[in-house]
Each structure stands twice: as C-alpha cells, then as structure tokens.
Nucleic acid binder design. Structure first.
Lengths: 204, 204
DNA sequence: CCAGAAACAGGAACGTGTTCTAGTATGCCA
DNA sequence: TGGCATACTAGAACACGTTCCTGTTTCTGG
C-alpha cells in the first residue's frame, strides 16, 4: 500500500530535531504565505512581506525556504495534505471506477477553484519548479496519485495500469488548471474536460 | 480543415504593415533569443543581453515583445512552425492510428530534447504565461493539436473524439517534458510514458 | 519638401527576489 | 557554568525584469 497520508513527511522527518520555536516559525511562515497568496496571488507573495508578517528576518525566511518557489510549493504540499486527509476519511462513492475517480477529482477541482488566487500562486510555483525543488514536487504528485488510485481501487485490488492512468489524469488535471489560470478556459470547461478525460481513459 | 500551418499567423497579419527594417529587427530579436536560450536556458535570456545582441534599444525590445514571457513564447511559436512544416511535408508512417501518433510525438520529443536548455526556456515561459499571452499560447497548442489530429486521421475522415484525445495527449506530453526539465524523470522515461499514454488512450 | 507623428537609441531608475555582512541571541557540550 | 557553534535580526547591497525620460531618427500626409 503506497498511501502515505502526509505529503510533507520528509519535512516532518527533518523537523523531528527542530525546536518548538522553529516549528512555530515554520508554521507562521506557511500561514502568512497562504494568506498573502489567497489575497493577491503569486505576485502578492513578496518575500519581505512574508518575513515581516511571520515576524522573522528575511535571512531566516531564506534559511527555512531557499526560494519563493520552494516556499509556495511547500505551502501547496501543506494544502494537499489537508485535502488528502479530508478525502481519505471515507471511500469515494460511486459504482464504477470512473464515477469514483470523478468524485475525487471534482472535489479537488472545486476545492482549488474556491480560492483562485491561492491556486494561481501554488500552481505557478509548481510549474516554475526546477530540479532543486524536485523532491517536494514529486511528493505532491505522489499524494495526488494516491488519491486517484485509491478511488479507482475502492479498497479492492490493483487493476492493470491503474497507476499509469492516474498519472495521465493528473497531467490533464494540472494542464487544465493552468489553462484556466492562464485565462484560456472557463472554470466550467475545466471540469467538463477533466470529466471527459476520465470517461475516455478509465475503463470500467 | 483546421490545419493552418503558420502558428505565427496572427503576428504575420499584423506584420503586413511592418516595414522591412521592422521585420528584420523582429527576426534578429527572435534569433538572439533562441541563441541565448540554447546556450543557457531561461535565465540566460536576459532582456538587456537580447537587446544588445539584436542591436536594438531595450525600450524597442519591449515595444516588440511586452515581456520576457511574450518573447520566449513567440520564440517557441517560431520553433513550432519549423517543426510543423517539417512534419507536414508527408504523411506520418504507420498502420494504426496509435503508430502514426507515436511517430509524430516521438519526432517532436526528440526534436526538443536535442536542445534541453532551449526547451527549458520555452516550456517554462509557456507555463508562466498569464492571460495576456493567451493568444500566443493558444496558437501553439492549436499547432500541436493539428499535428496530432492529422496523424490520427491520416488524411482520412474524422474519428469520434479525436480532437479531445489529441488534447489529452498534448497535456501528457507537456507534463512529461516539465517533469524531465524539473529533474524528476529521465529522457528515456519521458518517451516511454508518452508512448504508453498513446497506447492507452488512442483506440485502433 | 515640410510638419507632425510614430518609432527608436541610450540610459537612468524602480521593484522585487536573492545574497551578504555585522552584530546579537540561543542552544549544546564539557 | 563558560565557551562555542549555530541560529536569528536588521538592513545594506546586488541582479534582472520592467518602466520611464530625453533626444534623435524615420515614416507619413499634405
């Protein structure tokens, strides 16, 4: 079973040696980041502003998160954790595999679209991530893949290619979010396209 | 028939009123951009440097391309034009639809991976594009979609959902390029995954 | 050919991500 | 407890995308 829950696990592992004050700083930083992103999107997350609101020196902010991209990707990992734990509370409803996957991805999509500016900030950071952010990005993708695969299997056994299919759906899902954020697609069209991809790709 | 050839058509339309010197400037700018990107990727494309090499003032560069993102996306459109015209010279070989699509996408993938830094620069610009770059990005996607759909149809009639399937494949294609550029995937794995997506998604 | 408009050159200036420096506080080990 | 390494603060400094300003060249209509 690859379901791991905490996407931020590797961070948590390193955090075991962190003092309480350090954990508190990290939490304040992420919290300030989410607040700023939610208010004004990617460009509103300014490092000086984050530092000030977190009551942390700029240099300290950079000690915790070596770049704005790292910071926002970490914030996204934190959000995926929340979403993931909410969705894993119970099995996704639905008779067919496609129905259950639709349920999970629709919830995820709506959850993101509820806060467009925050989503814009996080997704843009994901896309701008270079190899130095590789581990964090991989963890987020793994978390989302787990969600989809779990919905497919419905607690049952693996099905052929289910992991690969989940990866394809995740690619489509991300690409459409970007198209939406880039103003090339309406929110409603995003969900329609994702749903269509599911029906085209996921066999009963 | 939606095949249009020139991705940069709308630019060309506006360019009809351009003087020869202006067309030359535009060409020098794009050329300098490609050279710098090929050498050092996204970060090596510095606006001052592009301006200097193009023998154009910085303000003039910004008159032609209102941002670095516009500049790089335009450069990509130019490259897609080249690739597209090369591939449309003759029908893609292959018996099945999947085989022909594989041929086209493999050629495209190899063409990009031959110059990783240039690809990195262009793809990162694509992903960072906001709504102000919407038209250019849409043109690039249309150009690639045409390539895929044409390979599917093989000069024949449309097949159900072929446009939607082409869009899915393009999403996967982009996402895997990004994963590769982000250091989360080997070049060989990129092609293997895309090929697998084709066989999973394109029915015979 | 002339006058006005538009485009261009050259370069200063600004904003924000990132780095660096100097001094101070905090935790750890003998 | 004292000393030392590490972490933190405050803020200057730097890099590059972007904007703006001033003066000059080029285009266009009459």
């Amino acid at each position: 079973m690859t379901v791991v829950g905490q996407v931020t696990a590797q961070t948590a592992a390193a955090a075991e040696t962190e003092t309480a004050a350090q954990r508190a700083r990290r939490a304040r930083i992420i919290s300030a980041t989410l607040a700023l992103a939610s208010r004004g999107g990617f460009e509103a997350v300014q490092m000086r502003e984050v530092a000030e609101r977190s009551e942390v020196a700029l240099g300290t902010l950079y000690r915790y998160f070596p770049s704005k991209i790292h910071l926002l990707v970490s914030a996204m990992a934190s959000e995926v954790d929340v979403l993931s734990s909410r969705l894993q509370k119970r099995q996704a409803p639905g008779e067919t595999r496609a129905e259950r996957v639709s349920f999970v991805l629709e919830r995820s999509t709506r959850s993101l679209q509820r806060d467009p500016l925050l989503t814009e900030a996080m997704v843009r950071a994901m896309m701008a991530a270079d190899s130095t952010v590789g581990p964090e990005v991989a963890a987020i993708r793994q978390g989302m893949s787990d969600l989809i695969v779990q919905a497919m299997r419905n607690g049952g056994e693996a099905v052929e290619h289910d992991v690969e299919l989940a990866a394809i759906l995740q690619d489509v899902w991300f690409a459409r979010q970007i198209a939406w954020l880039g103003g090339r697609m309406e929110a409603a069209d995003v969900w329609r396209d994702i749903h269509q991809a599911i029906t085209l790709v996921v066999p009963d």
